[in-house]
């Protein structure tokens, strides 16, 4: 089975649980032989998808405002972006909208955008109605899901949905060509097969 490496960028305010989601996703898997990594801000996980294996290379970003300007370096070349907000913080949903806008303007073409409303275990102090978020997601053709990293709710599903939206590989592409593309137009790199 061919393995495709897919870069996935995580965006969202600090404290919304970006890295918790990824840690949950990566660690929950039955194989506990996660390759030793440097730290939790870059994690990988391989999942089967159709007749391919998708290896997610997950790039976490710092959500603080002061790092905002660095974001393009992280999302360039991404096959997908997961924008996370905290359903208990309206602010974080506003930030999410800014990210969506920025991705539309500056992000890679064809990037798959997924919106994750995290902390849905805290429904009683919810500030962002699910309906509103869902409608917003639909309006921009984004994946929408509410998750709970703490309770491991919908985390797998989030990435499965992403996997399904990744366009299948064109077989004509050769590896070496791909790497050339990487230099010139990083956006194309996500379609690279390894």
């Amino acid at each position: 089975m061919a393995i495709r490496e897919l870069k996935v960028c995580l965006l969202g305010d600090t404290g919304v649980g970006k890295s918790s989601i990824v840690c949950r996703f990566v660690q929950d898997h039955f194989d506990h032989n996660i390759s030793p990594t440097i730290g939790a801000s870059f994690l990988t996980k391989t999942v089967p998808c159709g007749n391919e294996l998708h290896k997610f290379l997950i790039w976490d970003t710092a959500g603080q405002e002061r790092f905002h300007s660095l974001a393009p370096m992280y999302y360039r070349g991404s096959a997908a972006a997961v924008i996370v907000y905290d359903i208990t913080k309206l602010d974080s949903f506003q930030t999410l909208k800014k990210w969506v806008k920025e991705l539309k303007e500056h992000g890679p073409e064809d990037i798959v955008v997924a919106i994750a409303g995290n902390k849905n275990d805290l429904g009683d102090i919810r500030e962002v109605p699910m309906k509103e978020a869902k409608e917003f997601a639909e309006s921009i053709a984004a994946i929408f899901i509410e998750t709970s990293a703490r309770n491991a709710v919908n985390v797998e599903e989030l990435f499965q949905k992403i996997s399904k939206q990744i366009p299948p590989l064109e077989h004509s592409e050769v590896d070496s060509n791909e790497s050339f593309k990487l230099t010139r137009q990083p956006a194309a790199s996500t379609r690279r097969c390894c």
Binding site: L57, W59, G77, S179, L182, S189
Partner: peptide
């Protein structure tokens, strides 16, 4: 360039940032 997406690329980006 083929390494830029991996872990090395990530932390290099972070260092750059």
């Amino acid at each position: 360039p083929s390494l830029l997406q991996g872990e090395g690329g990530y932390y290099l980006t972070s260092a750059y940032g």
